[in-house]
Design a protein around this nucleic acid. Structure first.
Lengths: 349, 349
DNA sequence: CTGAAAGCGCTTACAG
DNA sequence: CTGAAAGCGCTTACAG
């Protein structure tokens, strides 16, 4: 005999031993090997020893993919996680929390970044479902997730994180975006600021829109009016925020305070302020906390989110569905928390 | 007829339509459905239309898991990625780079964090391989990866990233740890520092050991001697580094400079220096760059790594193996780069 | 251009 | 306690 499973010599990938090979070497039926591999009862110690020896000798490893295909529940012990950008600290914290909950259950996580591309969102969601993930956690980027209704009905639970579902009913875990932004900007108006600039993502992104509306509400509450020159939408990166801040500071009538609607934007704004030495003159409150915000001079005041808590809850909700939870879908609001560190407490010019 | 694939009504998961269901509805053979789904040639437009209609009507989605099982090459278009902690910015950057290369090839990424737990490393590596990943990229935590030799021989290519393989020959992509640390500490000795503290991970971690050796070499080069009180091993988190820095600063004969051997440690040391207002007196050079290091006062000088480049190269090497590359395994050294920002240029007290 | 039969590696459902 | 047969959803290898 020259090789196991001889028919497969033509394939590029070297042959791996199968249960059949182990059974043949041990001189037992394939079902007995299956029993030993799966630690089922009703195997004599002698049989078990023979099977284990043979498996060891061949370097046998079970093919989980084949096993899942045949198993009754159709489960693969894999979930999919679609986030904006896994390299963003917020997304990375969500990912890590989801991983922790999943790994405690022996479930693996397939991840992908969407980069604000709705076409990519649909394609990746479909691909993951076609790969038989047991469930999906998604921070959607498009304005319509109705394409997931069929999958949901077909039994794949879907949980939204960070951003709410649109045109589909599903569990969701999101920050109190409107209230958080309102709190942040009120913190500035309370100190007398009226010329408060807004820096944030395109309002097509729901969270950005909600935060912008919180900003508007805070202005309204003090009878302030929207000053178009102070509003910068489509600012979603460190560089864009830096550039926008530079422009704002160079204007004839610059703002006395900035509200930055997400972590990268806050960092870019901070860099802009430092670049022109204005960090102790122009106030700044950011949405979402970030590393070292407390060490800068002044410290950066933020409305902090709870990405770890959000990821953990999203994963728990998903597994609850997989465990049979049939209660109506619900949106879970995770409160934000104002952290005063100095930059948000600076008085107007 | 009340349901498709009637035998499966007993299972918890609602039934999904299969190729058989589509074939039955379209009134064609299952192989014709397979041809249409896989966009093979030799299908009449009429047949194709009937199949597409039926698939659409049923909401049919192909089961990629079953497809992979039967396909000749045994590939699943999935790779595994095992990193220290996906929430660490270094790991997150590696992950994102691997994802970019993979997604361009239509390959999905299964990720997991190892948390410096060798048992977890072995278990997760095995699990991923049992799930039929096409290849594995790993930043190992244990001191022995010989357990992977069998898998490697059986055809699963393995590429190491950040940390070199031990007791197995495989491709690797690592930073010039020794040289980088040497450069960092020489940068300090050149300015006259002799009492230079070391803060870093347990030397059982190869990269930490190499960086520590670079530190030692730099001291030797100026005839300096190792001062045990200045060496803090087993410092791997922000909090631990903060605590160690606090102790160092409170000593009767404190160091004039610090070398921090990774990003979290540098951040913790920075916090410690700021806490006691010593950031402009005690010099600091960190290994691995981090966000906002340039905005702090003084800016934090670092020896920067290239996590994005490392992840990209690791993924490319893996796919080259999958494409048949049979050249000997090689370790690729990615140079580090000293960035002067102020903290590393402070003179000795 | 089309489809029936066999099989991927495993588990289920039985029979002994 | 053990194992032969059938089948998970699909593709391969053929035959027409």
């Amino acid at each position: 005999m020259t090789s196991m499973s001889p028919d497969r010599d033509a394939y590029r990938r070297p042959t791996r031993p199968t249960m059949r090979d182990v059974a043949a070497l041990a001189g037992v039926g394939i079902k007995t090997v299956s029993r030993v591999v799966n630690r089922e009862d009703n195997v004599s110690p002698e049989m078990e020893a023979r099977v284990r020896d043979a498996a060891e000798k061949l370097g046998y490893r079970p093919n989980l993919t084949a096993s899942h295909l045949r198993r009754g529940d159709g489960r693969t012990a894999t979930i999919g996680l679609l986030l904006e950008d896994v390299a963003n600290p917020f997304s990375a914290a969500v990912l890590r929390a989801v991983e922790n909950v999943s790994s405690a259950r022996g479930v693996q996580v397939l991840i992908a970044s969407l980069d604000e591309d709705p076409a990519r969102e649909r394609e990746l969601a479909r691909t993951l479902i076609d790969r038989q993930v047991d469930g999906l956690i998604i921070a959607p980027t498009g304005r319509d997730q109705s394409y997931l209704i069929g999958e949901q009905r077909a039994g794949t639970p879907i949980v939204f994180v960070d951003r709410e579902p649109r045109l589909i009913e599903a569990d969701a875990v999101v920050s109190t975006n409107h209230e958080g932004a309102l709190t942040a900007v009120e913190h500035l108006t309370l100190r007398g600021h009226r010329r408060i600039a807004y820096l944030g993502d395109a309002p097509s992104i729901m969270t950005a829109k909600q935060r912008f509306e919180g900003y508007l509400r805070a202005l309204e509450n003090v009878g302030g009016e929207l000053v178009p020159e102070l509003v910068h939408h489509d600012v979603g990166t460190v560089d864009a925020a830096y550039a926008a801040t530079t422009r704002l500071l160079g204007a004839t009538d610059p703002p006395t305070a900035l509200f930055a609607s997400q972590n990268l934007v806050t960092i870019g704004a901070t860099k802009g302020l430092h670049r022109f030495g204005r960090q102790s003159e122009v106030a700044l409150v950011g949405f979402d906390d970030f590393s070292l915000a407390d060490i800068l001079k002044p410290g950066i005041s933020v409305v902090a989110q709870e990405p770890t808590e959000m990821g953990r809850l999203a994963a728990r909700l998903l597994f609850a569905r997989l465990d049979g939870d049939g209660t109506p879908a619900q949106t879970h609001l995770i409160p934000t928390r104002l952290i005063e560190r100095g930059s948000g407490e600076l008085p107007p010019g």
